[in-house]
């Protein structure tokens, strides 16, 4: 492994020191996570109300989803969170050569998640199990389209967050290659880590809420 050059970090001019800068960044990120929770929280409220109003549709709709593929995707996200944590560990231990491989593994796992999601989507679209305006499947419950409206809205917004996370991972890999991260500085890694765990957190609830209804 070629030696990665180490680039020292200097705090921006309006901060007293690097500690203050790091604390400010983490505080900002926690606030951002707070707003993410309320954003997806809106979907949670919607889910609760819709499930109360159309219980049969959720049971029937959930039967159309594959818990195997959903479970596989859960595993992808859980392991990707672990590899991202290991990337930070490597930075803290000054093992610069390991940061990019761990970030790359995280990226590939996120990509696998989206690929599986893509297969699921195309299968549902093929059977006409899509939101109301294009819904064309046969069903026992007349509100079945509401379940698939919820399914596509929630998983679609979540997939968008995964996509954004992948963009952030690429940015981190580019910076890591230039030696930006080491025992003296890992703030961007920590911020993306918090974001990525939030994405994982949301999926943890989406999986039983959509795939495991009976």
């Amino acid at each position: 492994m070629s030696q990665v050059p180490r680039k020292e970090h200097h705090a921006a001019h309006h901060f007293d020191d690097a500690v203050q800068e790091r604390d400010a960044a983490l505080l900002g990120m926690w606030l951002f996570i707070g707003q993410e929770l309320l954003f997806f929280g809106g979907l949670a409220v919607l889910y609760i109300v819709m499930r109360l109003q159309h219980p049969g549709a959720f049971v029937e709709g959930s039967g159309h989803l594959s818990w195997k593929l959903g479970g596989l995707n859960t595993a992808f996200l859980v392991v990707s969170s672990m590899t991202l944590g290991l990337a930070i560990r490597s930075a803290k231990r000054d093992e610069a050569g390991k940061i990019v491989p761990f970030l790359g593994a995280t990226f590939l796992l996120a990509l696998s998640f989206l690929v599986v999601k893509g297969f699921e989507y195309s299968e549902k679209i093929h059977h006409g199990l899509v939101p109301g305006k294009w819904f064309s499947a046969i069903g026992a419950d007349p509100s079945l389209h509401v379940f698939f409206g919820m399914y596509f809205a929630t998983t679609g917004l979540h997939a968008l967050h995964v996509l954004i996370g992948m963009g952030l991972l690429v940015w981190l890999m580019l910076r890591a290659r230039r030696g930006h991260f080491h025992s003296g500085y890992q703030t961007p890694l920590d911020l993306v880590n918090l974001y990525w765990h939030t994405v994982e957190l949301i999926w943890i609830f989406l999986f039983p809420a959509l795939y495991l209804v009976s």
């Binding site: 159309h54 159309h64 819904f135 499947a137 046969i138 069903g139 509100s143």
Partner: peptide, 29 residues
């Protein structure tokens, strides 16, 4: 008949189409 049923796009089950991609229906149509 069901909640706010005005124009459901869901095609109702009949005798001839009682399974949908392998999943048996859970209710009587």
């Amino acid at each position: 008949e069901f909640n706010f049923s005005i124009k459901s796009p869901v095609k109702p089950l009949t005798g001839s189409n009682h399974t949908i991609d392998g999943h048996p229906p859970r209710h009587e149509g």
